[in-house]
Simulated scan of single mutants.
Amino acid sequence: MQKSVGISLIVCMLVLSVGFAGCSKTEPVKEAAPLVRSQAVQADALGQNASYSGEVRGRYETQLAFQVSGKIIKRNVDLGSVVNPGDVLMEIDAKDIAQTVNISSAQVASAQSQLNLAETNLARYRKLYEQGAVSRAQLDQYENAYEVALAAVRQASAQYTQGTNQLGYSSLVADSAGVVSGVNAEAGQVVSAGAPVLTLVKDGEREIEISVPENRIDEVRSAQQMRVSFWALPDVTVEGKVREISPVADKVTRTYKVRITLTNPPAGISLGMTASVAVANSAGQQGVYIPLSAVYQTGDSPNVWVIQEDTVSLRPIKVGAFGDGKVQVVEGLQDGDVIVTAGVQKLREGQKVRI
């Protein structure tokens, strides 16, 4: 009896061991291919140079101001208004100027009356002198009085003309067609003569204004080629060239203003649009440029992960110039190679990836 119980226990233990062994078997875990950011390598002459952000400006921008002082009583334009030659943009109160004109007009009448009297007296004393009734000295006095009266008329007439001109200056008139790009004064404000109140961008050429740091001025000045793109027009790229470089740095930003003329400006550009200017290599040499984040350093050797048939492999490279988040690759890459540009530290040789 005891022998049979022992045999039964052994059989049960064997069955349990076999069951636990079956339960301990696990399926191998399949590793998901990581998703990576990639970039196709392209030979580019612009890769190592910076792109400068700028805006579309008019080549001819005029600061308009009144030629006389006074209180603004009317503003006829707003920001962005399109104006034509002869349009009245602003007006100032001209009551005081009109009174000055009236005073000048009265002075002209008075001087003209004095001139008429002097002319009559001169004619009378000439006849008396011819008859020998008066001396030459008396005739000279009346001739001199006539000259003084004539000069007084000229002076009063000039003052009257000046006053009428100032009366006309009380209206600010557009001298050319364009767009109002700035308003610096409002109705009710008292302005002095020569103080800018409006900015008018004349119709015509459009340019790109960028700010360049002092260590890049020579590079921009000697640039052989510039490519201008627009944030609002993603499919438009035009060529440009430097027209003007400011000789003095801005007091706040310590950068130099540079004006870029567009060779063939697109029809869709408007004033104030955001533009990006890429400066071509002055040497004109093509090169391969990749982001710094794509470089994987092993010891003293720089490498990149190259993707071929969804599999990554480490390839050593030889680097050149650094700048603006990019590095020049002198050897190791060819035009058309696809490389990983982000997450290079998490990859291993021969690993499958998703692009």
Rank of each mutant, 00 (worst) to 15 (best):
G188C: 11
D235Q: 10
A33D: 08
A275G: 04
L167D: 00
G58H: 02
K352I: 11
G323L: 06
R315S: 08
N264Y: 06
Y296A: 11
Q131V: 01
K3E: 08
T311L: 11
Y142Q: 12
A118Q: 05
Y296W: 12
V108P: 00
W231M: 07
E209V: 12
A111C: 00
V295A: 00
Y52K: 03
K326T: 07
T253G: 02
V148Y: 11
P265C: 02
S229W: 04
A195T: 15
V101Q: 07
R75C: 09
S24D: 06
S229I: 01
L117Y: 12
S301V: 13
T237L: 06
G22V: 11
V134G: 03
L9C: 13
D250M: 07
V319D: 01
V36K: 06
V190S: 11
K241M: 09
G194R: 10
L233W: 02
S104C: 03
G268N: 09
N264S: 15
E331Y: 08
N76C: 03
A43I: 13
L333V: 00
F66L: 07
S110P: 00
K71N: 13
Q285T: 12
V238D: 02
E207C: 01
T261P: 00
S110R: 09
T261Y: 01
A43G: 09
E239W: 02
A195I: 13
T253V: 04
A152S: 14
Y60I: 10
D300R: 09
S229Y: 00
A187P: 08
E61R: 12
A137L: 13
E349H: 08
Q67H: 11
Y169R: 04
V252R: 10
K352H: 11
V29E: 15
S17Q: 14
F66M: 07
S38L: 13
G194P: 10
Q42P: 01
V329S: 03
L271P: 05
A280P: 05
K3S: 11
Y129K: 14
L150V: 04
L79S: 03
D310C: 02
A118R: 01
L198W: 11
E186G: 14
R136K: 15
A45Q: 11
G19D: 02
